[in-house]
Amino acid sequence: MLDSSRPDVRARGTGHAPSHHGELLQGCFADRAGARRNGLVTLRLDEPRTRAEFRPDPALRPGEVRVVPEDRVNTALAAETAVRVCARLTGRAVVGGRVLLSGGVPVGLGMGSSTSDLIAAVRAVADAYRISLGPQEVAGIAVGVESASDPLMLDARPVLFAQREGTVIEVLGERLPPLVVLGCLTGGGAAVDTAALPVDDYSDEEVARFSLLRQEIRLAVRSGDPALLGRVCTGSALLNQRRLPKAELPDLLGAAEESGAVGVQVAHSGNVAGVLFRADRAGSRTRAAACARLLARAGVPVTGVFDAPGS
């Protein structure tokens, strides 16, 4: 029964969500019982981000949500799920409404655009219902709709995240080592059809290598070692060549070595990539500029330079 003493749903609610710059590490990791769990560590970005506004609309049937842009089908499904969840938690009515998305997260580059849209919309619905859904609730909605999710509903701490379960496997530490990232694009910046990627059929040898990389990224984060983190990212990028090969990876590695970078990182399901420089030493941006010139000569588009958030 609805609680008539509670105020109605707000005329509108707002929400937002960050994006990411691909993965620092992605693979398959054995837990203590020997079970294998797919997981990833993303390079989170505060900007670009997605912003959403949810407007209840009595012209729509209860529980129906329409999204602008109209092609964001999964975002609409997630918002409809959020309406039902929020109505149940608050005792308020199930309403229909519209979600308006805005922001600049590129689609198909491996920057978490679909997850960012979805989270922003869910948060906007919750705001209209005057509640806040926790990260685990949001992750559950995301995985339920898309079968996999990036950890953008969490705080900025680096985590190993089980993207198909929506759960944290391990909190690696409080913040990344200090990094300057030279962003670039592989594959000409073309969108990647993630549904067409090979299944995650990792070999025993790969799982063993991922186990070592997990130990190293944990040590890199907790000791604040950018050089060790760079080696982990490079190792993960090389392992990813079997799943989503980057023709430009040799150029990235060559430019990284020549310009004094600590490593490279790539989106494991997209075409964004980065060359990593340690920010705790003078001249990191000068080295990044030199690397940008090397990549330009190799025909690799450069998108800009930024400090790794939280590092």
Rank of each mutant, 00 (worst) to 15 (best):
R278Y: 07
T115Q: 11
A156Y: 12
L89I: 04
F277E: 04
L60Y: 00
S113G: 06
Q265F: 09
T194E: 07
R98P: 00
L294P: 02
R214V: 12
P245R: 10
P135K: 11
R37P: 01
P177N: 04
V67K: 00
G283W: 13
V180A: 03
V107P: 05
A195H: 13
R123F: 01
V300A: 05
V68P: 00
L182H: 06
P58F: 03
S113R: 01
F54H: 00
S211Y: 08
R36N: 02
R66L: 09
G260L: 08
V85W: 00
S147H: 13
A208Q: 12
T286K: 15
L252N: 04
G22F: 02
A220V: 13
A33W: 13
R214I: 07
R243F: 15
F54I: 10
A82H: 05
H21L: 15
P250R: 13
S149A: 15
L238V: 15
C28V: 08
V94H: 00
F306E: 13
K246P: 08
R243A: 10
R297K: 14
S114V: 03
S259Y: 03
R88I: 01
R49I: 01
A208L: 09
L100D: 03
T81V: 03
C28H: 11
K246F: 14
T115H: 07
V122Q: 03
R214L: 11
V264L: 11
A227H: 14
R12W: 06
A11H: 08
L276K: 12
A195V: 10
A93W: 02
T194D: 04
A282R: 15
A128N: 04
A17H: 06
A298T: 07
V95H: 08
E165H: 13
Q215H: 11
A288L: 05
A290S: 14
A267N: 12
Y129L: 08
S284F: 06
R37E: 06
V272F: 07
L212D: 11
Q215W: 11
N74A: 07
Q163N: 15
V65D: 02
D71H: 11
V300D: 08
D280A: 10
V122K: 01
R278N: 05
S236H: 10
T234D: 02
P198I: 07
G230Y: 00
L294S: 04
S211V: 09
G270I: 05
M1R: 11
A196W: 10
V143F: 06
S5K: 12
Q136V: 10
G310M: 03
V41M: 06
A296F: 03
G103L: 06
R92K: 15
Y202H: 15
V99K: 02
R66V: 07
A93F: 03
V275Y: 03
L24Q: 01
T186C: 14
A59V: 03
R231F: 11
P151D: 06
V180C: 09
A59I: 04
A78R: 01
L213Y: 03
R218T: 12
N240S: 15
S269Y: 10
D307F: 08
F277G: 02
A17L: 00
A298K: 09
G104I: 09
A121E: 03
G63V: 00
G96Q: 02
V125K: 00
T115M: 00
E205I: 07
E23N: 01
A247H: 12
A142S: 12
